[in-house]
Design a protein around this nucleic acid. Structure first.
Length: 372
DNA sequence: AACACGTGGTC
DNA sequence: TGACCAAGTGT
């Protein structure tokens, strides 16, 4: 275990810093549904939802999630279709599948009680260094660091740390800092205060230093360099992926849907039949029809163009040309099962989780038909 | 270490 | 309008 040295920490009056920060949090914290109590299960769910996701986005999802699965055991017993539906639209869907298997493990191994040791809790799927520290400090009062993007931004300023926060090893520097700074009597408030401060005051763009409860402790403010911090180098280019997707119906008015693979992008979510189309430009319909036929043995008929959808992911961009179409011939039951295809009515379709891009297809269809 | 993994909001 | 961002983790 290498010792991490942070010279500037000597300049901080730690007790005064703790008091100013924690007092501010106790006074000014937002009322959030996951702050109603310290149930480790609720804290856990909220921390997973909040990964890379805004508070305002999470609130309605969290409330519905707790409504559907009030206890850890309720969630452990839920089926995968339902848990994906609970997450539909939130993104990063592996979060909910990992949470599900982790919760089932807690039920089986720990009698349904979320473990309170760093070693045990860190073994759970989807529980990394941040989430482990967050649950341990918030739900169990353990003096563990919970270093997220907010904490790195706030502490990079207070301690004038110029390490690139995009680099994995940098998190360790900030964990070491938190271990020295954390208020052992108020671990929950201290860690949450760091994040709350980052969200409300010590923001990325223009930090509201004049309103900051720990302004007098901030080395970057003292030096007038708060806008230069944190240092963050990085940006990957996205690549375009052209896709042709078709909303296919049969004579019964049912829609054909396809379940995505169990790993990778949008794993296990449902979608309308589509193919990546690197070939060309004017022949998208023919391309789809022939690919569909070679995959499933039946030739669909594409009728009308629907909408063009551009969907931006963090690492790629789908350029989707969508159409409506019909399937007149019968697709055999074996083919349907083998290829994870399903005919569903407009009512049944509500039970399945779709990525946002494909939700837009049905919306466009409804808008166009003027029905619902 | 670097990249895959979603979505909606912001300046 | 195109980054850049928001309470990260798995591989």
């Amino acid at each position: 275990m290498k010792e991490i040295n942070i010279p500037t920490i000597e300049k901080i009056n730690i007790e005064a810093f703790q008091k100013d920060l924690v007092s501010w949090f106790l006074e000014e914290q937002r009322e959030l549904p996951w702050r109603e109590n310290k149930d480790p299960y609720r804290v856990w769910v909220s921390e997973i939802m909040l990964q890379q996701t805004r508070v305002d986005t999470v609130i309605p999802y969290f409330n519905r999630f707790i409504d559907w699965f009030p206890t850890l055991e309720d969630f452990a017993n839920a089926d995968e279709e339902k848990i994906l539906k609970a997450w539909e639209g939130l993104g990063y869907y592996s979060r909910v599948r990992n949470l599900h298997s982790a919760v089932q493990e807690v039920k089986a191994l720990y009698n349904g009680v979320v473990p309170d040791s760093p070693e045990e809790i860190s073994k759970l799927k989807g529980v990394g260094p941040y989430t482990a520290g967050a649950i341990l400090s918030i739900a169990y009062g353990k003096p563990e660091p919970a270093v997220d993007g907010n904490v790195m931004r706030v502490l990079s300023r207070i301690l004038m740390i110029y390490e690139d926060i995009a680099k994995p090893k940098t998190r360790k520097t900030f964990e070491a800092a938190v271990r020295k700074l954390i208020d052992h009597n108020h671990t929950s408030a201290f860690n949450q205060a760091l994040m709350e401060l980052g969200a409300l005051i010590c923001t990325p763009g223009k930090p509201a230093c004049l309103l900051c409860p720990v302004q007098s402790h901030c080395l970057a403010f003292e030096a007038g360099v708060q806008s230069e911090l944190p240092v963050k180098i990085q940006k990957k280019k996205t690549r375009d992926v052209p896709i042709v997707a078709v909303l296919l119906t049969n004579e019964k008015g049912e829609f054909l849907i396809h379940k995505r693979a169990s790993e990778g992008l949008l794993a296990n979510l449902w979608e309308y039949p589509n193919f990546e189309n690197h070939t060309s430009l004017q022949h998208k319909r023919e391309f789809f029809e022939s690919r569909f036929q070679e995959m499933y043995g039946v030739k669909p008929e594409i009728t009308d163009p629907l909408v063009k959808i551009e969907h931006v992911f963090s690492h790629l961009v789908w350029k989707v040309d969508t159409y409506t179409g019909t399937v007149k011939e019968k697709i055999s039951e074996a083919t349907l099962i083998e290829n994870q295809l399903k005919w569903v009515s407009k009512t049944e379709i509500e039970e399945f989780a779709f990525p946002v891009s494909h939700q837009k297809m049905m919306k466009a269809y409804n808008d166009k038909e003027g029905n619902n």
